[in-house]
Design a protein around this nucleic acid. Structure first.
Lengths: 200, 200
DNA sequence: CAGTTTGGACAGTGTCACTATCCGATGTCA
DNA sequence: TGACATCGGATAGTGACACTGTCCAAACTG
């Protein structure tokens, strides 16, 4: 298909597709002449991925570029997969050092995590910000939140393990981590309603 | 304290504080003369709230305005609290109708939720976006995610129930819902690592 | 072969969260 | 008292970002 048909198939204006091509988040089509190129279903898929990441994942175009680069590279081995995935994903704001409460939590839960990794720093900063905003998270509440997210991660790992190939597994982990976050946020709000009603 | 001292206490430039005053997200100090005003600890608190919501919650200044308006209004009764809170919070992107799978999920879990509420529409859209991005969420996975978020909501409701006054409860629910989201996201990434390692 | 479409270059737009500049009034300190 | 910094308030400018509009020549299309 030509660029105008790709635009029609995805609902994204031609101009925006050109922009994505320029920014390197959409791979070029196969040129049929100096001023003509052919696009296929993989381009449709890619455009939907880009839009999903930008609109729902809040990922910048530069972040998307780093993600699609990773998806196009030879996939890492199983144990390295998460490290690569988390290094690829755009990190939230981080400021201070890793707080003692996070170290205590990790220790308490028996989690084996990379203490210098982005998620640990992000958690410290997020807790600090919540405290500053007047909503301190008690150690007890934090523990219960962590247990719940462990259950989420169990699902994540199950889904990734079901992937047919390493390439697909990487795609599932990277894209799934970003795109499922808004799903969880919505579910949390719905669950708040449900629990609140159930408590009467 | 004067505006320059408020700036020093919060680490926010004076110019930005003036901007917040202009935008109505920071209440004016008590004027001591025509060109002088006095700020107190509640202003420090408010500034930290605004920064937290903007930086970590990804809330726009207009969204912050709606939130602080709600926090300053007479608090709603317990049963109305969540409705008011969710109506106040900035909604994620929503496009289509409520999908059948969401209705089925709610039915299956026995949740009593407002089907026309923002969270239900957001969930439908987020699921649709994930599908489009090549990471479909199976009904089984969705169910397990929902159960996990139910556990999160249990904590949320416990924390809110512990509030000393309706005003404080509203603050906890509104601000906590926004500020704890990034905490959960970070915990999810850490839990992914931990679970992945544990599975060996 | 007239008219449309394409790829490519390049600059412009709209939004948003600040940030800089001015101004006259007011504090502060020698 | 008077020099000088600071304050509030008003107005306008900045930089980042995700597009979006304009042009152009080449090349399809009917």
């Amino acid at each position: 298909m030509r660029i105008s048909e790709l635009a029609e198939a995805t609902g994204v204006p031609v101009h925006t597709l050109k922009f994505y091509l320029r920014e390197g988040v959409l791979m070029p089509g196969t040129a049929t002449s100096r001023t003509r190129a052919e696009y296929g279903p993989e381009h449709v898929e890619r455009v939907r991925l880009v839009r999903g990441l930008v609109e729902y994942g809040g990922v910048s175009v530069e972040g998307v570029r780093s993600i699609v680069r990773a998806l196009e590279s030879p996939p890492p081995s199983r144990p390295e997969l998460l490290g690569v995935a988390h290094a690829t994903l755009p990190a939230g704001p981080t400021r201070g050092e890793v707080s003692a409460e996070v170290a205590a939590l990790v220790d308490d839960l028996g989690w084996q995590v990379w203490h210098e990794g982005p998620p640990v720093a992000e958690l410290s900063s997020a807790l600090e910000a919540a405290r500053g905003a007047g909503v301190p998270v008690s150690p007890e509440a934090l523990r219960r939140y962590a247990r719940a997210m462990e259950a989420v991660a169990e699902v994540d790992v199950d889904v990734a393990a079901a992937a047919a190939s390493p390439t697909e597994a990487l795609h599932t982990v990277v894209v799934g981590t970003v795109m499922v976050d808004p799903v969880l946020v919505a579910l949390r709000r719905m669950a708040q309603e449900a629990v609140s009603v159930a408590r009467g």
